[in-house]
Amino acid sequence: MIATIWRFRVHPEMAQAFERAYGPHGDWVRLFERADGYAGTELLRLHGEPSTWLTIDRWRSEGDYERARASFADEYTALDRRCEAYTSDETWLGLHSVVA
């Protein structure tokens, strides 16, 4: 199992739209659910910093993640562009191995 982690700085006035897009039933989850090996997403709001959020996307393997990115490249790019309006900063924190 692997996880990709992203940090976002969200414009305060866009917090609800951000939650709708990145939350457990949001646009990103609906895209990823179509891919083999997708195991879920967590949306975390950093305590004490209300404009900072983390997403943790879990995948069965790095190969599943890479195949999903390739298979849905156009949709991924279009959704990413639309969601840019919600944030002032988006930082990929890497691909992580899940330790059981």
Rank of each mutant, 00 (worst) to 15 (best):
A73W: 01
L54H: 12
R82L: 13
E42L: 03
P50Q: 13
C83R: 00
S51I: 07
I56A: 15
E49T: 12
L54F: 14
R82M: 04
L95A: 09
D74N: 14
T55S: 14
R45T: 11
G94I: 01
V99R: 07
A100M: 00
T77P: 08
D27N: 12
W53E: 11
R34N: 00
W6H: 13
R58I: 00
A17K: 10
G40I: 06
L93E: 08
A78E: 12
H11P: 03
R60I: 03
L43M: 08
A73Y: 02
R34W: 03
G23M: 05
P12A: 03
F8W: 05
S71P: 08
T91Y: 06
R7H: 13
A78G: 02
E84T: 13
P24F: 13
C83Q: 02
E19G: 10
T87L: 06
D89G: 04
S97M: 12
T55I: 06
I2K: 02
W92A: 15
R7P: 09
A39M: 13
G48M: 11
P12T: 14
M14I: 03
L43A: 11
H11Y: 14
G23Y: 06
D57I: 04
D89W: 00
D80R: 00
W28L: 11
T87F: 09
D80H: 11
H25K: 15
Y38S: 03
A68E: 06
I5G: 06
H96S: 07
R20P: 07
L31V: 14
H96E: 02
L31K: 07
E75H: 11
D80M: 02
A100K: 07
G23C: 04
P12S: 14
A68Y: 05
E84Q: 14
T55W: 10
M1I: 13
M1V: 05
A68Q: 03
R69N: 14
V98Y: 07
T4V: 15
R30L: 04
T55L: 04
G26I: 12
S97A: 00
Y22A: 13
R20N: 15
F18P: 09
E84F: 02
F18I: 00
Q16H: 08
P24T: 11
E19H: 02
T52W: 08
D64C: 04
G37T: 09
C83D: 15
W53Y: 15
G94L: 02
S71L: 13
G23L: 07
P24L: 12
V29K: 07
R58T: 05
Y86I: 08
A85E: 04
H47N: 08
I5A: 02
